[in-house]
Computed example of a mutant assay.
Amino acid sequence: MAGIPTDPSADPGRREMLVGTSRTLLRISVDMTAGRPVIALAGELDVATAPAVEAVFFETFDVHRRPHVVVDVARLSFCDCVGLSAFLHVRNRALAGGGWARLCGTGPGLRTVLGITGLMPILHCYPTAADAFADVERSTPDPRGQEHL
């Protein structure tokens, strides 16, 4: 699924695209202004938009030797099981590369779903991207793909 880029000349450290179908729409923003990627999702993360989200993350991982990426989900209005699966794929790919992927801005609804599914301790959640990146120095993945804090 190809995304529609939005104003690429606005900020060289930021990239945005719109993906979706006539029924769902998701805006994906990649902000590299602090030298570390924060990928913000706004809209609906579902079966129609999850492949584009994974593609953006994997492109971001290819640029960084040890990928540390934060997913800002504060403006995510919907996330189905395919969206949760996309978060897991992103996390696993980051761990395989010696890094991690974390969530920030999780609202009560998504936190409830993550708790019910048992994903809360796997998909680490933080209030802000700065809080998530503050853990870079403290977290080290082990060879089995588990993070230790």
Rank of each mutant, 00 (worst) to 15 (best):
V90D: 01
V73K: 07
A132N: 03
L149P: 15
D131Y: 10
H68R: 15
L26H: 02
P108L: 06
R75C: 05
G109E: 12
M1C: 06
P108V: 00
R144N: 13
F58K: 05
G99T: 10
L103E: 02
D80Q: 05
R36P: 04
V82R: 15
V113E: 07
L149V: 14
R75N: 09
F57N: 06
G109H: 12
G118F: 02
G145K: 07
A74H: 14
Y126S: 05
M17W: 00
E54D: 12
C125E: 10
G145I: 10
F57K: 00
P5L: 05
P108M: 12
L26S: 07
I4G: 01
V90T: 02
R27G: 12
V63C: 06
H148T: 14
R65V: 14
F61K: 03
L114T: 07
E147C: 11
V47A: 15
P5H: 03
P51D: 10
G83C: 05
P12G: 00
A96Y: 02
E54C: 11
L123E: 02
H89L: 10
G3I: 04
L114E: 08
R75H: 10
A96L: 06
A10I: 08
F78K: 09
G105Q: 04
R91E: 11
F78P: 07
V82G: 07
L103N: 03
S29W: 01
D72V: 08
L41H: 01
G3C: 08
P51V: 11
D142Q: 10
G83T: 01
A132G: 14
D72H: 10
V53R: 01
L95I: 01
N92H: 11
T21D: 06
H148V: 13
L25Y: 00
S22C: 05
L88W: 07
G107A: 04
P12S: 00
G118E: 07
C79W: 00
P108A: 14
V19S: 09
S77N: 09
A101V: 01
G13N: 07
D80Y: 00
I4L: 13
M32D: 15
Y126C: 02
M120Q: 12
N92R: 14
L114C: 10
P37Y: 00
P121S: 13
T33C: 09
G107F: 08
L110G: 02
R102P: 02
I116F: 13
L123C: 01
M1T: 05
A86M: 13
T24P: 00
R15D: 08
R27F: 04
L84C: 04
R66T: 15
H124C: 04
L18F: 10
E59S: 13
D11T: 05
L114F: 03
I116M: 14
D135G: 07
N92D: 14
R144T: 14
L84H: 03
V69Q: 03
A42G: 01
P143A: 13
F87E: 12
S29T: 15
Q146R: 13
P127G: 11
T33F: 04
R66Q: 13
V90G: 00
L114N: 11
D62A: 15
Q146N: 11
V136C: 13
V19P: 02
H124K: 08
D11L: 02
M32L: 15
V19A: 13
F61M: 11
T106G: 01
A96F: 01
N92A: 10
R14W: 00
A129M: 04
V69H: 03
I116H: 10
S85N: 15
D131F: 09
A74P: 09
C81M: 06
I28A: 04
P141W: 01
E147G: 10
G105Y: 04
